[in-house]
């Protein structure tokens, strides 16, 4: 199965939707800059935001598989099972060591 429609049609169908999503990311980063730090002593940026900035670089790459590479960047690369999941239920959305 390949994509049955032309490149022009893909642009017509999806451009405005993804233009809006891009602006959401831009506005989110602006919002982050405007917000006052909750912990004045914290010097490092949140690992999730570091990871997001790395992901933005992948979007500018000129080869397919961007979605997959972004997901791989956000993934825990280890293979050892965790000692215990006691008290843990959810996930963060990216791996703390997920930045380059």
């Amino acid at each position: 199965m390949s994509c049955p429609i032309t490149r022009e049609r893909v642009v017509e169908l999806y451009y405005l939707e993804h233009r809006a999503k891009l602006l959401d990311i831009a506005a989110f980063l602006d919002r982050l800059d405007r917000a006052r730090p909750g912990d004045e002593t914290a010097s490092e940026e949140d690992f999730r935001i570091r990871s997001l900035r790395e992901a933005l670089k992948i979007l500018s790459e000129n080869e397919p598989g961007r979605a997959r590479r972004v997901l791989e960047l956000f993934s825990d690369p280890s293979m050892e099972p965790l000692e215990s999941a006691a008290g843990l239920k959810g996930a963060f959305g990216t791996y703390p060591g997920g930045d380059s």
């Binding site: 997901l71 956000f74 993934s75 825990d76 293979m79 990216t94």
Partner: peptide
């Protein structure tokens, strides 16, 4: 399969 960063592993 797990969520988010835990899925691939």
């Amino acid at each position: 399969t797990p969520h988010l960063e835990d899925k691939l592993k």
